[in-house]
Design a protein around this nucleic acid. Sequence first.
DNA 1: CGTGCAGAGTTGACGCGTCAACTGTATGAA
DNA 2: TTCATACAGTTGACGCGTCAACTCTGCACG
Lengths: 184, 184
Amino acid sequence: MAETLTPEEWELWDTWMHAHRLLVREVDRGLQRDFGISKAEFSVLVTLRQAPGRRLRVGDLAESLAWEKSRVSHLLTRMESRGFVERAESGASGRRTGIGLTEKGRRAVESAIDGHAGNVRRYFLDPLTPEQAAAIRAWSEQVVDRIEPLCGDAVAKPSSLGAAPRPEGWEGASGPAGGAQPAG
Amino acid sequence: MAETLTPEEWELWDTWMHAHRLLVREVDRGLQRDFGISKAEFSVLVTLRQAPGRRLRVGDLAESLAWEKSRVSHLLTRMESRGFVERAESGASGRRTGIGLTEKGRRAVESAIDGHAGNVRRYFLDPLTPEQAAAIRAWSEQVVDRIEPLCGDAVAKPSSLGAAPRPEGWEGASGPAGGAQPAG
DNA sequence: CGTGCAGAGTTGACGCGTCAACTGTATGAA
DNA sequence: TTCATACAGTTGACGCGTCAACTCTGCACG
C-alpha cells in the first residue's frame, strides 16, 4: 500500500464533497429559478459589468475568471444565443475585438446580484464562524497555490485589466464589487 | 438592497470555489489518467465493492451515495458499456434485481484506491492543519444539515444496507473502508 | 376484474466543463 | 516572399449532473 487514508479522513473528504455539491446546487438553482441564469453565467456577467466599457476580450475574461478559454467560449456561445452578451462583429481586420454586455445582460446581472448574495450568505457564510472562515480561506489559498502551478492554462495573474479591485483570481468571480461606471 | 456581501466575503466565496474546482479537477484527472475511471465511477465502484455480494439495487446505491437516482442510472449506463458493472438481467419477474461489480470493475477499483488516496491526501488533506480540518468538518455538516432537508430526493439516511461501516452519507463515497469479503 | 396509485428505474434534453484539434491572424526569420 | 511559429479564439466530442417525463411492476380498493 503506497497510501491509505483513515476512515475519518475518508469521511471528511466525503462529507466535504457532499456539502460542496449541495451548496453549489442550491445556489445554482436559486439563480436559475429567480433570474434565469446559471452561476457560471452570473460570473461572466459580473466580470463584464465591471470591465471598462463593459467589454473584454475573451482571453482577458478567461484570465480574470481563472477559467479555461474554451470553457468561456462555450459559455459565451450559449449566452450570446440568449442575448446576454454580444461578440463584437469582427472589425475591419477580421479580428474579434471583444465581447460586450447587452442591455438584457446588464439588467439580468443587476437584478440577480442581491438575490445571489443572499443565497451565498444563507448557505455558505451563515453557517461559518469567523474561525471557520479563516480556516477555509487559509486552506483554499494553500490548495490554489499548490495546484495552480501545475496547470499551465487559466492561471489568474491579474495583470492589466485595471478596473478590477480584486486582489486575486476568483473562481466564480461572483463579486459585484464596484460596478462599472457608465464608462464612457 | 435586500442583501449584500462585503468584498472580503465575495473574495472568500470566490477563492473557495476556485480552490474546490482546482482540487476536484486534479483528483479527477489523476484517477482518469492512472486508472481510466472518473471520480464518480470510483465512488460507485467502491460502494459496490463493499456491498454484500458486491451487488446493490440502484436505489440503495443512490441512497448510499446520497445521489439522485437518475445520476446513478446515467453513470451506470456508461459504466456498463465499458464493462465495469453489470445490470442483473431482469429476473423471471422482469424486475431488475440489482447491479453488480464485474471482475474488471473489481480490479479497477482495487488498483485505484491507493493512488486516489494519495491524491486526496496530497491535494486535500496535506494543506490542512488539524484545526482547519475540524473547522471544515463542522462547517460541512452544518451545510449538509441546512440544505439536505430542502430537497426531498437523494437524502442519505443509511437505513438498511447493513454492510457499510459508514456513519453518514458521503458525497464522493470514496472511502474503501472494509472491503467486501469474498462474500460469495 | 379494472382502475388508480406508488415506487423503482430509465430516458432524453440540456447546460456545464474538459480535452484535443482546428482556424485565422500576426510576427519574425530565411 | 514564404515558411515557421505563436497566439487568440472556436469547435466537436464526450463525460458529468439535473430535470422532467416516461415505463414497468406491484398493490390496494372498488
